[in-house]
Nucleic acid binder design. Structure first.
Lengths: 209, 209, 209, 209
DNA sequence: CATGAATGAGATTTCATTCAT
DNA sequence: AATGAATGAAATCTCATTCAT
């Protein structure tokens, strides 16, 4: 398990294509503001101020404010194949789910802004056709999860008295919301949070005698 | 159990004080828009259009747009004593948690907009001192949850190999995110979703032999 | 001939549909500025200043600056059927051409801004697909002219030693540019200008012995 | 007549003073864009893009965007003495007018951008004092035309039943608008267009028996 | 209660121009 | 000569709010 955790070389989401150093700095600043206040609540002037540049000058690096958001959520979308890759390793459902939860949480921890933005801006993204590819990515990740859980039930590893769709949603929510439990420099490490959630998902909170 | 479920006489969150019928209609329209698009993304004109009134005329009913939001999240805040009331009934931790999850989900289902707004607008509300009372309410609800879980661990009903704080967050997330699983007229009833989540929380997904 | 001239009840181009008095006033102000400085050179603030309104308030009456331009050139487009109507009266080519020139000039004189804008902004309008209907209108008017001249040549009323297409362009230019010769309160009346141009078109400048 | 046409050694308008090859290339590119879209509608970046240079680098060749426009319309202004030269040859009014129309059209055809810009930007140039010299040039050309027509009327070569000022405007318009009839590689040659317009101006379109 | 016109602050974006390298 | 980053003014547009009628 330890070895496998190291697999996630993708935890640090990279710009799809490197363009310029200054541009990346600005993008990082924008990401932090988008994550803290939301995309629409963040003004181009705030980004400029935080990046030490006049708002108008941002347009040397980005054509529109929307382009910044695209650049960020596009990084999220690159996660999809990594979920599939875990499944393709062909391990048991329990191990697979563990890995998937770990991937999600570790990605979120290494790229808190990108994940926070993609999650928090979900409604906005859904309303704007230009971001349809994000919905597609969500759907694909969902499909991967669903396949694993279904297989677990089929193979008799998971309970069959629970509707798999409802199980899926619950696990999914648990994995997604894990981000909120981690605070850099806080009480718990990423691994602790992952372990706790995984333990809960598999065993529940009730004590066995 | 059936009898206890009926307890939730508070599932339908009411205006804190009744003022006028037209005002309530407008508020309902605003709630739907806030829930669908977010508070800041919703314009006063959209509310007017949807309510069949000119935007300027809204100011006969509300002093500001913010007042509408206050009115809505204030309804959420009224939930706090109901959580406390469940605990005060003095039942076992397991039963108590079941009731609390049920309360949360049933409230969310009966008042989807109010809950969705309070959850989705969390960052916005946190940034604005005028809404500090919402943070207080969250903290109080959290404290109630924490007390119950701690008691469960102390009494040996819940596992003691998991950090109670992490358990709390997980259960909390599970309860809060349950809203997203319910769709009016969808595949699952509220009770089914509650039962599935409760089962998962207590027993986990792993099959017992 | 006098009677026929009165036909032009359309010389004063009307708003396609009456909306509000204030809106019309603003539109008139905008028309004057567009005509004087060009559409793109005119700022929304100048329009506001000239109309005694803040620039932002213009958006109560028009959704965009472009909408103002549409409203104006759309009035021009309504001219098309009137050209056709003259032809449909079935008079001789000479008389028909006289009437068409008179129609064009009288329209231009009564609506100098609308015509000036449509003519001066031709390149801009051609580049923007939203204004394609203006090109269509020009083409239709052109077709009417061409038909009349061709008929004149066929019937032996007009010279056949000149290419009709070149004749058309020349007459057209003469008719269109006539606008520039008229100045309200200036030396020449509309009728004088029309008569002079018509005389020139038919007889040329050379003296007959 | 053939011989006289060759007179127009000035048909190709030259830069007033040669500075650098690269500068001329850029100016040509700018001219094309100004002609196609208008001066104000053309951005410095578009010029840079079309010239294969960054917009900022244009300022190594020109101090301002306006300087480019000056350079172009200044070429137009050099036409004035050539009109005067035709008159000074002392031929009859008819021949003189023919030559003047030919000069105008041939210049326009050989330097379509410069002429198109000077004509199309007329309003802009009139509003800006820095371009007053262009107005002066127009006025001078006008004066030359007027003198010729007046002489034609005085000498009994032209009709005296038409106001010379109105005749002037008409002929002028006809000459100026001729540009629009010529398309490089199109149906008609420059000479054909000139001949047609000259014929129309002198004889009109009506057939003589 | 409602309308419709207006306000005024602020948002995103454009663009000629500057300048260190 | 050219690059590329930045400036700063101005443009279009948005929107919560006000107010006379």
């Amino acid at each position: 398990m330890e070895a496998k955790r190291k697999v996630s070389t993708v935890a640090r989401l990279k710009p799809v294509e490197k363009v310029s150093k200054r541009r990346d700095e600005i993008l990082q600043v924008a990401a932090e503001l988008f994550a803290a206040k939301g995309y629409e609540e963040t003004t181009i002037r705030e980004i400029g101020d935080a990046a030490g540049i006049l708002s108008g000058s941002l347009y040397h690096h980005f054509q529109t404010k929307e382009e910044m958001l695209h650049e960020l959520v596009r990084r999220f979308v690159t996660m999809v194949p990594h979920y599939q890759a875990i499944v393709d390793r062909g391990e048991g459902p329990k191990e697979t789910i563990k890995e998937m939860m770990a991937l999600g949480l570790r990605t979120a921890v290494s790229n808190p802004e990108v994940v926070a933005i993609t999650v928090h801006e979900r409604k906005f993204l859904a309303r704007h056709p230009a971001f349809a590819y994000v919905q597609t990515a969500w759907r694909q990740i969902n499909a991967v999860w669903y396949g694993v859980i279904q297989r677990g039930v089929d193979e008799g590893v998971f309970r069959d008295d629970l509707d798999p769709r409802l199980m899926l949603r619950a696990i999914n929510d648990l994995a997604a919301a894990a981000v909120g439990s981690y605070q850099p420099g806080g009480r718990y490490s990423v691994e602790e949070i992952i372990d706790a959630r995984v333990a809960l998902v598999f065993g529940g909170i009730e004590r066995r005698n």
